[in-house]
Simulated scan of single mutants.
Amino acid sequence: MVEIVRIPALSDNYIWLVHEPGSGETLVIDPAVADPVLAEADARGWRITQVWNTHWHPDHTGGNGAIKAATSCRITGPAAEAERIPTLDRWVAEGDRVALGAIEAIVMETPAHTAGHISYHLPSEGLIFVGDTLFAMGCGRLFEGEADQMHANLQRFAALPPETFVYCAHEYTLANGRFALSVEPDNRALVERMEQVEVMRAAGEATLPTTIALERATNPFMRAPSAEELAERRRAKDAFRG
């Protein structure tokens, strides 16, 4: 089993540090910055060997260069965004496989937030790193893609085993949940989840990872019956001030 550590960064980013004890390899997912990542790995005696990027945005790649300079790690990211991530050593696309020691991840192309966004599914570990495609009770903004792409992504995620852990890149849960309640105020699972989230955030606790089961039950974007409905909800969320 891999060990996963959450590293808060910037205002609401989470960088994920993933250690595979068998090989001693350590992976960084979407490093916004380098210093806290290097410090956490050093404190644990872990050797960073890889970085995996989900997309090109600077708050997901900003630490690449410094981590690579400090550790000589190998950086993997989306082939479709290679020109925008100059630190990449390996370019991957749909169906490609990447490994951390004995653990294998399958690359899923999940465009919409950015045109070349990818996610990393680790079936043997029952988890997925989704970058800015799926959030707890939310989804990414449609900066470079369309609602039909996002709808397809979320339905693809929804088909994963319900116990799959979902590692998102931002702590947006409270704001997303407030919007979700405006869409489904009578969703009892959502109401109960938000009661828990309010308590957790008031205590300064993180709300991630989430699970596919939780998102199926409470995420208005994953629950949208069509791309058109998802587009309407995304527009409403972009303007929401609740």
Score class of each variant (00 low, 15 high):
G242A: 15
P78V: 06
E163V: 02
G242M: 14
T71Y: 01
R44I: 12
D89V: 11
L38E: 09
R84S: 13
A102I: 06
H55F: 11
D186E: 15
G65D: 09
A82S: 11
P58G: 15
T87P: 03
I118C: 02
S119K: 00
E20Q: 15
A136E: 10
E195D: 08
D89T: 10
T164P: 04
E184Q: 12
I118Q: 00
P31T: 00
G22S: 11
A39W: 14
P36A: 08
S124Y: 05
E104F: 10
E81D: 05
A152V: 06
T211P: 05
F135R: 04
R178M: 14
N153Q: 01
G140L: 04
I106E: 15
F157C: 00
H121C: 06
M222I: 14
L17N: 13
V166P: 09
R188M: 03
I15V: 13
G131Y: 15
V130W: 06
F165N: 03
G63W: 06
N153M: 01
I29N: 01
T61N: 15
A158L: 00
E144T: 05
A66M: 09
L230P: 01
A112M: 11
E20I: 15
A213M: 05
L27I: 04
R216Q: 08
G77R: 01
Y14G: 02
V18N: 00
V107E: 02
R84V: 14
M150S: 02
A180P: 01
P161F: 04
L154Q: 01
A79R: 14
V5Y: 12
K68G: 03
I48M: 00
T54V: 15
A9K: 10
V166Y: 13
Y14Q: 13
K68A: 10
M150C: 05
E109S: 07
F135I: 06
L142T: 14
R74G: 01
H170C: 07
G65R: 14
L27N: 02
V2Q: 04
N53I: 09
P86K: 04
N53L: 05
A175Y: 15
L142P: 07
E144F: 08
K68Y: 07
A203K: 14
R74S: 06
T218F: 08
R6N: 11
V197Y: 14
V28A: 01
L127K: 02
A180W: 02
R241G: 04
A39G: 04
P185A: 14
I118E: 00
I48K: 00
T133G: 03
V28M: 01
P162D: 07
